[in-house]
Design a protein around this nucleic acid. Sequence first.
DNA 1: AATGAATGAGGGTTCATTCAT
DNA 2: AATGAATGAACCCTCATTCAT
Lengths: 230, 230, 230, 230
Amino acid sequence: MGIHERKEREKEQRREEILNAAQAVFFERGLQNSTMDEIAEKAELSKGTLYLYYGSKEDLYLAVMVRGFDLLHEMCVDVIGSSGSPVEAMWNLGKSYYEFFEKHRNFFHMFYFLQSPTLHKQVSPDMMEACNAQTNKTWKLVIDLFQRGIEEGTFRKDINPIEAAVILWSSANSILIRIDNECERWKEQLNVDLVQVYFRSNALFLESMMTKDAYTSYASLLSEVQTQTP
Amino acid sequence: MGIHERKEREKEQRREEILNAAQAVFFERGLQNSTMDEIAEKAELSKGTLYLYYGSKEDLYLAVMVRGFDLLHEMCVDVIGSSGSPVEAMWNLGKSYYEFFEKHRNFFHMFYFLQSPTLHKQVSPDMMEACNAQTNKTWKLVIDLFQRGIEEGTFRKDINPIEAAVILWSSANSILIRIDNECERWKEQLNVDLVQVYFRSNALFLESMMTKDAYTSYASLLSEVQTQTP
Amino acid sequence: MGIHERKEREKEQRREEILNAAQAVFFERGLQNSTMDEIAEKAELSKGTLYLYYGSKEDLYLAVMVRGFDLLHEMCVDVIGSSGSPVEAMWNLGKSYYEFFEKHRNFFHMFYFLQSPTLHKQVSPDMMEACNAQTNKTWKLVIDLFQRGIEEGTFRKDINPIEAAVILWSSANSILIRIDNECERWKEQLNVDLVQVYFRSNALFLESMMTKDAYTSYASLLSEVQTQTP
Amino acid sequence: MGIHERKEREKEQRREEILNAAQAVFFERGLQNSTMDEIAEKAELSKGTLYLYYGSKEDLYLAVMVRGFDLLHEMCVDVIGSSGSPVEAMWNLGKSYYEFFEKHRNFFHMFYFLQSPTLHKQVSPDMMEACNAQTNKTWKLVIDLFQRGIEEGTFRKDINPIEAAVILWSSANSILIRIDNECERWKEQLNVDLVQVYFRSNALFLESMMTKDAYTSYASLLSEVQTQTP
DNA sequence: AATGAATGAGGGTTCATTCAT
DNA sequence: AATGAATGAACCCTCATTCAT
């Protein structure tokens, strides 16, 4: 009986349509200024139907965010898959994350949400769980990469791969946020190009993680960052 | 005429009273859940009066935040003043920032506000300017410290002090945010102590910015971080 | 053809299942706070099916109420059947009605519904008719009892049995409602036990209905109420 | 300084205006079907202003109801004041209550509200208190009347004035409710005039509470009820 | 007969802000 | 300068009912 399957498929499709509409609205207005009315209108559905598929506005927001994390995860998988070594992969991850930031700035903005302690409460535990599961997957990717590098001898044996991942990712993220908000200001007032700082920071960090041997052979790679200097 | 001066003084005092009330309310409820009604009540003033002194709720929020930045700045001045060398000062800054984070968590939470792009629009340019001025002062402190270190030969000559400040501060900040939100989760799921990561991250970046000579002589200082390992 | 009969039987059974679910939900939440969703879930049926059997939520509510009236009717039949004389039966009816009130408080609450003029409109005429038919049956029981008493000479010849029934039942009902809502308040503020008032009221009324002869012989019965005085 | 007083007066006036509007809407639609929008519109005020004066729709409803109780109370005071003796006054109270029922049917309908257990929760304790205070005052009037009658020897010494008040008032009320809802039905199906029943019921209860002496002298008064028979 | 997805019209309440006094 | 009454625009979510399948 394909009837049940078709129903399922249609339902899933409906979920996607709602998500598309929500994404468009959230991108344009942000969480607070978006209304369920507008999302419903964009989805060409009634407001009530929205609540048939998602428990609250916040849940819907998180569902869109998960899409962003999916995208990010895919990107990470691709980058790691097409990179030769852990160090190279790590460096490329930094580059790709910047591309993600530029290309999917809206998703990047949504990620802020997870930092706002006030809003955590309004989200259903299930959705929160789904979101965490997704980010965990990506964290694991990076952590495993560090682990592999350590085993292969390109990263120092005395580093903890989880800690390294946290430090790398956090510092990268933090600088991107600054770029997002204050890029102009730093350029004008202090003549500093934050984008360059982003890459320098990544390079600096990677260098300090690497063993001496690895450092020698990958010097050329990391010197990329220098060539970006005007 | 002392009359005008007295008026001025009273006015300033009134501004402070309002700020005290606003701070108490914002600390307890966050920006969204705070109401001008509650602030007015706590200030024992009418709601209308609030608007004579501050243009909007967001402005008021920013004004409180500036207090936090003041506090942070003072702390930085103290730390730098009482530290022997740039490297030592830098390390102590990291420690003090953590203390600030623990002691003034409410102010730290407010700082999130500056990262939310949506809300930037709701703030008056004047207040934003005042806020930036305050943070600039603190940035300058750190930048100058790097500059001094470079001149003294403890920091590498090839680093840009501004960039170094951005990298160090951003990564520190980012990890503290993670501690704030996800400390338990990382502990339970991956057995990682994010507080330790915070200090390791600071140490790591400092090390990689130091000259070899400095590294040797300050090794003992940075090894503090190791002693925290259980 | 047993087929048609079986279908009929199944249909009736389904109606009962729905009624069971509705009763449980209405008892727990009252009319307003009950939702067809919850009833459908409890009945393990779809919401649409509910509407195949009952025209509206209010109709369903009335159908449950009819069950309560059934119960009440049965009780009346039993009491009258097991009582010796009209006066005794009348007195016992009062006692049993109080028991019903205590034991089936939820049904008693539902009966309020019939008093709310606003809600009358939302009920289908058919269901209203069914409900009235049920209450009429019980009314007839009481009226006939009065009639019998008059014929037997225990109740005064100059009373109208219908009027007597209305007065007795209404006053009893009204005091029970007061017990339901304000029992504590009367106890605390005026030290009056409304339950006692209920029985006194019944006794008072019956006395005034009886002929002198009957009054003499039944004095002992009605004096029950006095023994409840502390 | 009359300025403050004038403000107070205007505020009180505003409360009245809101009450007028609310009364009109509640009378027309009942509690559930009335909307704050409509009340605001009728009051020519913004919806927000309504909430400046009354905490909720239910509070507003209760405030209107208190007006009804006021009216009823006044009526009772008048009737008692202009009646010769407690028995006469009691009888006249019954007559006046019927007039109230006819003239202020809408208020009478509102009184149902107090019987609905579900809705009690939605009302602010203050307003509930005000409402109870008002009804208590009226109860006291009736209770005192019985007390006086007992002292004067027209009511039996063995009756409790409070109980008597409850019995009389409750039964009267209950029959009026029946008149409100089912007057036609009883007329058509059983040829019973419920209005007559109402007066007979009052007469009956009064008689049974009177002393023999009083009964003799007031026979003519109570025989009024007979003259109403067609 | 049964489903259950879709509807869509609300509806009470909140609050930042204004402005006459 | 200070008040505080008034505003009014928003907004999320509910739920009885319908109807195509």
